[in-house]
Amino acid sequence: DGALGYVREFTRHSSDVLGNLNELRLRGILTDVTLLVGGQPLRAHKAVLIACSGFFYSIFRSRAGVGVDVLSLPGGPEARGFAPLLDFMYTSRLRLSPATAPAVLAAATYLQMEHVVQACHRFIQASCEP
């Protein structure tokens, strides 16, 4: 009938959804994969991993990836570089320090998270400047 429609946009919605997903992760609710990183088991949701990482996108989107519920990353990132990335995926906040940045950069490169790689390079560059 051509009546003017209205849309109510809840501007906090995406961060509220992410916060709830992080709470589900911390409580192990609906987590569907265990990542063995440096021997340390980390539970996560494949959907979040695939949404955030080109590496996981290529693994879990394939039919073979559907049945995977434990994934070890041999020769992959060390836990101290991977854990901050997993937290970033679920919080949008990437914790970096001069001591951890190289390990996070290596893990982000491995996980094909290009935008985070660039941010790590900017951080390391800034850390080197007097």
Partner: peptide, 22 residues
């Protein structure tokens, strides 16, 4: 200082874009 955290806002894209179904 131990524990001091400076937050830098990154306005750009944060993660890859999943290609839209052709």
């Amino acid at each position: 200082q131990e524990g001091l955290v400076a937050t830098v806002k990154e306005a750009g894209r944060s993660i890859h874009e999943i290609p839209r179904e052709e």
